[in-house]
Amino acid sequence: MQSTDSLVSVENVSRVFAMDHSGVKALDDVSLRVDSGEFLAISGPSGSGKSTLLNLIGCIDRPTIGRIRLEGTDTTTLSAAQTTELRREKIGFVFQTFNLIPVFTAAENVEYPLLVQQINARERRMRVGAALESVGLAARASHRPDLLSGGERQRVAVARAIVHRPALVLADEPTANLDTSNATQLIDLMRDLNRSLGLTFIFSTHDQRLLEHTPRIVRLTDGRIASDDQGESHGQVLAACVS
């Protein structure tokens, strides 16, 4: 498989977790290509390998077998320091439980990836303002996470994920802890950012509300890709997922 044109290329990847004397195969010979600007959902039941696949693409875990390329770079051969640098510059993360730093304000949380990149204060201020503006939380910039609603926290997390202009945003079950209204707002927000900024989103979910807005859905079952539905109608996609 030629992968150099894709933003992400997963090539025959397996991930086996050692458990006592046996191993549990979380992913089994998975191959996948994601182009720049895509809005891709990875769906499947619990234990199907969604989070494992996201972790591998996000360079916070390594495959047992296979290769993963990000912008043509084989991430499986990089050193720990190189993968840290890659995550810092190329990837934004959104987590199911928001994972904001509780002692930082919303603005400071959004600023954190820029601090790690050691970007100067003026540039940081500008980018943080723009990021919070883009998620509609400019007015809540000085609030700490415990003073924000669940939906607001996740929007701060999205702002934090995009503030350093990554090539890829990975979101693991981003709507799992949100009510319908907030989940819908978040999905709309992510889709808008995908369209307006051309950001590539890959997220794991089994939230049907989110799947309705997703043009491409990769369905995992028992660690293998059961289907990769592109450009189908929502009805067809949903039917496939429900089945």
Partner: peptide, 14 residues
């Protein structure tokens, strides 16, 4: 622990 994991995921040097 989870907060530290998040910081490391975002590329914070160890």
């Amino acid at each position: 622990t989870r907060e530290i994991g998040t910081m490391l995921a975002m590329g914070t040097p160890r």
